[in-house]
Amino acid sequence: MSVDRLAELSRPAPVAGGVDSQTQPAPGRYEMRPLLSSQSDPSSMDGFLNEISHIQETIRGINENISRVESLQSSMLQAADAREEARIRSQLDSMTSETQQFMTHVKQKIKEIEPTPRHSDLAIRKNQFSNVTKSFMDTIQRHRQVALDFQKAESRQYERQIRIANPNATPDEIDQAISQAEQGRPAVFAQQLMQSMTNEQRRYDGQQTLDAVKERHEDIRRLAKSVEELSSLFEEMQFLLENQAKVLAQIEESSYQVVGDMEKGTQEVGKAVHYAKMTRKKKWICFGIFAVIVIIIVIVLAVHFAPSGGSGGGGDQSGGEQQQ
């Protein structure tokens, strides 16, 4: 299997405070990996199986990334300060971007190896294609669930930040701010809540709190968009799998019909052969009967027209005796 580096994502994540990452490595930091691409020809069986192996390997890489994303999300929720949170958010964005690139690559590869009726080894391709597509769909669902869980946790953090910044905010107002974030709308309502803070609160940490609320709003918005994209990708793969099943079912049904027609034709040929044999047998019987009749007629005619030599000879002998 040949390998092609399509995208180098191995950029070091930024470290807060300008500290060099080599002198002070950050916990939970991960190196981005290059995206691998198989150059096999899926028209042959060997090429098809190589593509399946490549897709499975990439799916394993996606699952590893999802586990790393979960770890980074947990670290981000437990960050001690805004600088630490910003550093982890940068790593999380890079890891999410890499994972999305891997998933797009797998989607394209699955579409490239989709079985068609022209393949003579359709049954093998059908099983392999179905298995790898279902595996990818499971991975999509896992990634989507991780995003949903983090979105809920971020919403709870968002709510706490708003309540700390503005204790007078009502539950309905907070729900409206969260709903705006999930719908991808600007943080207008959250800003209005921040603007209603008292002068004492503003003197304490007004702008810092507002920035933190905006960041959390953007996190929720990005998560909501990611969940929507993953749902669309899952539906696309599900449609592809169902459509493939329908096409293959039609092919199998046509094959069964052809086999049935052939069996029916074989039965009809068998009947025709049987009838032909019966006809020939009847012809021979008729010919035998006709021959017997002809023989009988010939015998009768021969007996009827045969000369009576015995009675003529007796007459001559009696006449001779009288003359003597």
Rank of each mutant, 00 (worst) to 15 (best):
E98Q: 14
E159S: 12
K277N: 14
K264P: 04
V294P: 00
V298T: 14
G265Y: 05
S44E: 02
R29V: 13
A177D: 09
G260S: 10
Q141P: 01
L248M: 04
A16T: 10
T170D: 14
L6F: 02
V292I: 14
L230F: 04
Q91S: 09
K126H: 09
F102V: 03
K134R: 05
I164G: 12
M137V: 13
S40F: 01
I289M: 14
M32V: 03
I164F: 14
P42V: 02
S311W: 02
L35I: 13
A123F: 10
S179E: 12
E64D: 09
D121Q: 14
I178S: 03
Q267H: 06
A165Y: 05
M76E: 10
Q24D: 13
M1T: 08
S67D: 11
R125F: 04
I62P: 01
R89Y: 08
N166F: 00
Q192P: 00
R125S: 00
K225A: 13
S37C: 05
K281T: 15
G309I: 12
R68M: 10
Q192R: 15
F287N: 09
N199R: 12
D46T: 13
Q157E: 12
I55N: 03
S130L: 10
V298K: 13
F136V: 02
Q157K: 14
I162G: 05
V300N: 15
S38M: 03
R87Q: 15
P34Q: 04
L193P: 02
T209G: 09
Q180A: 09
L122S: 03
F136P: 00
Q238G: 07
L77N: 11
Q145E: 08
V227A: 15
A16I: 05
L122M: 05
R185E: 15
S130Y: 07
G61F: 14
R222G: 03
I140G: 02
G206A: 10
V273T: 09
R89K: 13
D138H: 13
N166S: 09
L301M: 14
N166M: 03
Y204N: 07
G312W: 00
F305E: 06
A302I: 07
S40T: 08
D211A: 15
E64R: 07
Q22L: 09
G260T: 05
R216A: 07
P117S: 06
A177Q: 04
I178R: 08
E218P: 05
R87N: 03
D93G: 05
E84S: 08
M194F: 03
Q195I: 06
S37W: 00
